[in-house]
Computed example of a mutant assay.
Amino acid sequence: MKTSLICGLAGALSLAAMPALAEVESTDPIKLTLHDWTGQLLTTNLMGEVLKKAGYNIDYVQADYIAQFAGLKTGDLHVAMEIWETTGREAMDEATGTGNVQNLGETGMQAIEEWWYPSYMKETCPGLPDWEALNACAEAFSTAETAPMGRYLGGPVTWGGFDDERVEALEMDFEVVHAGTDAALFAELESAYQRKAPIVLWVYAPHWAPTKFDGEFVEFPAYTSECYSDPAWGSNPDMAYDCGKPRGPIWKVAWSGVEDKWPGAHAIIKSFNIDNQEMGDMVAKVDLESEKLDDVVANWMTTNESRWQEWIK
């Protein structure tokens, strides 16, 4: 779902506050990565437009969420605006550990990514949200393709998250089926919810889904770093990932060379901050109200001018 700003809008925003070339450290384009979910496209385009207002040239580059770190380490890619504590922390820590990638701090958004079910499923499986109760009801979540195993609809494979490993480590009677895209994931939720059909799937916040639909996140054993790194931790002495996913901030990261080549942009990216409510509202405008992503970005830029002007001082 690659989205780019329309040429007219991009040109207008780029030229509106373009300073003399001497005011920017380099006219080389700063490459911001785009992924495959609406919120990240919004965050990245917002950041790009703010940087354009400061006079920088911007390129948007489609990249895999986890594999992008290879490009960030070499400087072939420059900025990634959403690294989720829930799924990207290990890759981020490895990259920053090399010294070639910097963590530029929190975006202001707090991440939850976990198994989720509609509340109507508690009539069939009253022990929910406990994961063991879910597992005891696995057949109630089955489909013709997975029966008698339950079906868990995961996110696209590129998102990571260790759901396949989690099912194996906790010896769950579920088969993990990965949605091809973010849009497909939530289209299936919408369809199931309207029919009150059985479903348990990957839901995340900030997003409109936990607000629009009545449901709950499954409660797995609480995450600790040892759960992911030490097989001896937890209920399965031989396997890691026998717990739920971590929760926490959504981070901004950059190639370490950004600080030297574009120090002004580096400071602006560190200043960028937006909260869950803002993001959830914007994602809803794009996904539910069919507004163009470009228009949502332009509206945010207009209504928050005093805010981003502080970032680019």
Rank of each mutant, 00 (worst) to 15 (best):
A67Q: 15
E94Q: 10
G234W: 05
V218G: 00
V297L: 00
N236F: 07
E82N: 11
A140I: 07
K270I: 09
C125T: 09
L134A: 01
G234V: 11
A138Q: 03
L293G: 04
V101F: 01
A205C: 08
G71I: 10
N299D: 15
I112K: 02
W84H: 08
N100T: 13
L5G: 03
D238F: 05
P249H: 00
K53S: 15
H78L: 12
E305W: 06
V176L: 10
I58P: 00
A133Q: 02
V218I: 13
T158R: 12
S271E: 10
G99C: 13
P221R: 09
P156M: 09
G160N: 12
K270F: 08
T181A: 09
A91G: 06
V177T: 04
V167D: 01
W159R: 10
G127M: 04
M279T: 10
I268T: 01
S26Q: 04
E106F: 15
N57A: 13
I269V: 12
N135K: 03
L41W: 04
H178P: 03
M239W: 04
V258E: 03
L104C: 14
L15I: 06
L46P: 07
L41G: 06
V200G: 06
E90R: 13
L185I: 11
E23P: 07
D28V: 13
E171A: 14
P221H: 07
A95K: 00
Y65M: 15
D130H: 11
L201H: 06
E49A: 15
G180L: 12
E165H: 08
F174Y: 11
D242I: 06
D260N: 14
W251T: 09
M121T: 03
M172W: 05
V101Q: 00
Y228C: 15
A232I: 14
V157K: 15
P210C: 08
C227V: 13
Q277M: 10
P148W: 05
D28L: 10
A133W: 08
E132R: 15
E114R: 07
D59W: 04
A179K: 04
D260L: 12
P231V: 09
M121P: 05
C7P: 04
D260P: 02
L104S: 05
E85M: 13
G88A: 10
F220P: 04
N100F: 12
A22M: 15
I199D: 00
L201S: 13
C125R: 03
E168Q: 12
G280N: 12
A136R: 07
C7M: 11
A22D: 08
A254I: 13
F220T: 02
D28Y: 00
E171M: 07
G160L: 09
Y60V: 09
M282V: 15
G39S: 11
E49V: 15
S271Y: 12
A232F: 10
D214I: 14
I30K: 01
L128W: 01
G39D: 00
L170G: 05
A22Y: 14
P29M: 06
Y56P: 08
V24H: 04
E310T: 14
Y241R: 05
T74F: 02
A63P: 07
A10F: 05
F220L: 13
A254H: 02
L41E: 03
S290C: 11
D93Q: 15
A95P: 08
S290D: 11
K212E: 08
Q102E: 14
S26H: 05
